[in-house]
Nucleic acid binder design. Structure first.
Length: 566
RNA sequence: UGACCUAUGGUGUAAUUGGCAACACAACAGAUUUUGGUUCUGUAUUUCCAGGUUCGAGUCCUGGUAGGUCAACCA
């Protein structure tokens, strides 16, 4: 009993609405929702929130979720986007009901609905120019004036509308508008535009249509046609809702499912650009290599970078959904990614900034085979073998000539553990003329094979390493987070948004040559792995056998680095 | 200066609908650790303001204040 009441808590406002509707049998005891992107760009992390919300609601309440392309503006749309959107939704782990839907599937029905409005005296063909339309509409504080064509006879509008459809007029010559109220305090109710003339090819309907419906007329009617019960969109559509409802009042059969619109706050994230328009600009201006550039906040960019679908879904769940404007700290996303990767990622040895270590008392010929654990917290992930010999590489910052306090890695005279291998003690080091350390000399303790000693002496530091002879060179792309300016206004006003971006900052991309263990090259391009103490990485899709390319997925939470900063 | 929306720790989101303000991230401190990771424990920081109703208000009422959205033939 306790448990039941507990589960009823912590519902977000949409879940509360849906549970109430389900309880009242409002729509026959079921729900149908939809995710309705316009195919004019790739999906980004903001869309992921909406996808998880809509598909998640359908899943949790035994309903359906449609994927519907809102393709009513052919000037901006393309099949490339249609395909990438489907791929991204599927990759995120969701399946839409039936086939994908398109607003363009309903162009004929929409047209007939518009004809009905004209016949009912609720719509008319206008002949104002764009400037005139704007002037007649009034302003936020002043009422608009009726168009001189507002009372055009029904028969005349009907005939003109048909001729618009047939492509008899040039773009912009005529418009179809609803006849509502030019003095309404809500601008969207001042005789909204229904159809405009566009003599261009549509990516699905080709040259069949010369007129295309606008969002306000199309969206609600598409929802109605598909039997959507809950039409969930973002906050900026709130003022559209009265219009959404007006159209349904005129056109919908009240015995059928009447959809309702609900709004939630879109995702804003610190240091992250969430505007499709500006992301498109970055692609077009070749600031990035494409929509799936690992620096992009797109779903495809994050996928390429090694983010997991489950991590993104957990993030969406974690941030919740409400109606107030928000600015989510990006560390919350990174936490969700790490949390998932911590369970799934193999721990490989990789040395990003190599420095050679010679173990002077180790035999020159031969070597040891070392058994490494793929994931110490998950035995089922297995083990692998690594070579160990007299010459190895370690991370440059794992050695300090003069160790600072609390530094417990390698330093002259100090002993550390080479992970899975031996304890070594630094005896000497070599510097070049610039004072750069080029080589470290150590001795090893043969009694510590596997990284353990019988006397159980305390070894404060464990460092990782790769065998010099068998190591593979890799090009590692470090996408360093650049925290330049966290305010959302900054992105909006900045001409070059990359300056403010978490990863799009030009200084964020560092390419280095690293030494990695051979197994990394065989790990494939899907799996993300961890270089211990350096972060999570994944092999890039452009990687070749000659040139191993690795992207850094996300850094580790590193309190040592933070302590150093202070 | 019109209409609409929203105000809960640094950031998000809850609060059994009027009954002890909590969960996650971030921060800090400690323990464990063959990753300065993970895990575990702990600390600090919260109801926009002013009135009112009530035994009792984050929640209800009145009045303010702040932020957001809207004047594309975009969605």
């Amino acid at each position: 009993m306790e448990e039941v009441t507990k589960e009823k808590k912590n519902l977000n406002f949409l879940e509360q609405i849906i549970e109430e509707d389900l309880a009242n049998n409002t729509h026959g005891g079921t729900i149908t929702v939809r995710f309705p992107p316009e195919p004019n760009g790739y999906l980004h992390i903001g869309h992921a929130k909406s996808i998880c919300l809509n598909f998640g609601l359908a899943q949790n309440y035994g309903g359906k979720c449609n994927l519907r392309f809102d393709d009513t503006n052919p000037a901006k749309e393309d099949v490339e986007y249609v395909e990438s959107i489907q791929e991204d939704v599927r990759w995120l782990g969701f399946q839409w009901a039936d086939e994908p839907k398109y607003a363009s599937d309903y162009f004929e029905e929409l047209y007939q609905m518009a004809v009905k409005l004209i016949k009912d005296g609720k719509a008319y063909v206008d002949a104002l120019t764009p400037d005139e339309v704007q002037a007649y509409r009034g302003t936020i504080t002043e009422a608009g004036r009726p168009s001189p064509w507002r009372d055009r006879p029904i028969e005349e509008s009907l005939s003109l509308f048909e001729r618009m459809r047939n492509g008899e007029f040039e773009d912009g010559r005529y418009l179809l508008r609803a006849k509502i109220d030019m003095a309404h305090t809500n601008m969207f109710m001042r005789d909204p535009l229904l159809y405009r003339i566009r003599n261009i090819e549509h990516h699905r309907t080709g040259k069949k249509w010369a007129i295309y419906p606008l969002y306000d007329f199309a969206h609600g009617q598409c929802d109605y046609i598909e039997g959507i019960t809950h039409s969930i969109c973002t906050l900026e559509f709130i003022p559209h809702r009265p219009l959404y409802e007006w159209f349904l009042e005129q056109l919908a059969d009240p015995t059928k499912i009447i959809p309702h619109q609900y709004e939630f706050a879109r995702l804003n994230m610190t240091y992250t650009l969430m505007s499709k328009r500006k992301l498109l600009q970055l692609v077009q201006n070749k600031v990035v290599t494409g929509w799936d550039d690992p620096r992009m906040p797109t779903i495809s960019g994050m996928r390429r970078r090694g983010y997991t679908a489950e991590g993104i879904r957990n993030f969406a769940e974690r941030i919740g959904v409400a109606k107030r404007d928000n600015l989510i700290d990006i560390s919350s996303l990174e936490f969700s990614i790490r949390e998932d990767l911590n369970k799934k990622a193999i721990r490989f040895m990789g040395v990003l900034d190599p420095i050679k270590v010679i173990i002077t008392n180790y035999p020159e010929a031969g070597g040891d085979l070392i058994i490494a654990t793929n994931n110490p917290e998950d035995e089922t992930m297995g083990k692998r073998l690594m070579k160990f010999s007299r010459e190895i590489y370690i991370e440059r910052d794992d050695f300090m000539e003069v160790p600072q306090k609390k530094y417990h890695r390698l330093a002259p005279g100090k002993e550390v553990r080479l992970r899975y291998a031996y304890y070594i003690t630094c005896t000497d080091f070599v510097k070049d003329t610039d004072g750069q350390i080029t080589e470290i000399h150590c001795t090893y303790d043969p009694e510590t094979f596997g990284g353990q000693s019988e006397d159980n002496r305390k070894i404060p530091g464990t460092i990782h390493w790769v065998d010099a002879a068998s190591a593979i060179d890799a090009e590692v792309r470090l996408y360093e987070p650049m925290f330049t300016d966290p305010t959302p206004e900054a992105y909006e006003n900045e001409i070059e948004p990359k300056k403010f971006m978490h990863f799009l900052n030009p200084n964020s991309l560092t390419v280095i040559r690293a030494k990695v263990e051979p197994a990394v090259a065989e790990s494939g391009r899907e799996a993300t792995f961890q270089f211990e103490r350096k972060g999570y990485f994944c092999v890039d899709k452009d990687s070749t056998t000659e040139n191993l390319v690795i992207n850094r997925t996300v850094t580790l939470r590193d309190s040592y680095a933070k302590a150093q900063q202070k």
